[in-house]
């Protein structure tokens, strides 16, 4: 038996079919008590970040407009329009603030997100 330290174990959870995600639009998955915002960009890449907007507290980032800022894939909070990097979770308008990012992959046409 191998004991994995809890902090480093990534548990993958299947959340939806790849085709359930629309290009350039987010969706939200509920994994345990985590709300995870999933995004599929125009080139087919997937990203996962926390769904809670750190400025308003509301669970809404998955409903923001997806785009790019200086080439970096990003989403704008639908509440007050702060922009977050989909790659790093850092708020590009206020780099002192960031949202969590989660690993995401496709296995057999199914989207899976990793939660530690």
């Amino acid at each position: 038996m191998t004991v994995l330290s809890e902090a480093t174990t990534t548990v993958w959870t299947a959340v939806c079919a790849y085709t359930d995600l629309l290009p350039e639009r987010g969706a939200c998955a509920l994994v345990g008590r985590h709300q995870i915002a999933l995004f599929r960009t125009f080139d087919g890449e997937l990203f996962a970040i926390g769904n809670q907007d750190p400025f308003s507290g509301a669970q809404v980032l998955s409903r923001g407009i997806v785009g790019t800022r200086a080439g970096e894939p990003s989403v704008a909070s639908p509440m007050h329009k702060e922009v977050f990097s989909l790659v790093t979770g850092v708020c590009l308008d206020d780099p002192a603030v960031a949202v969590p990012i989660y690993p995401i992959r496709v296995a057999d046409g199914t989207v899976e997100v990793g939660v530690r």
Binding site: C16, D20, L22, A27, C28, A29, L30, R33, A58, Q59
Partner: peptide, 17 residues
């Protein structure tokens, strides 16, 4: 189909509300 809180749990209301 877009009017759901969670793509993996369409019938579940957002527990944060």
């Amino acid at each position: 189909r877009r009017f759901v809180s969670f793509v993996n749990a369409p019938a579940t209301p957002d527990p944060s509300i």
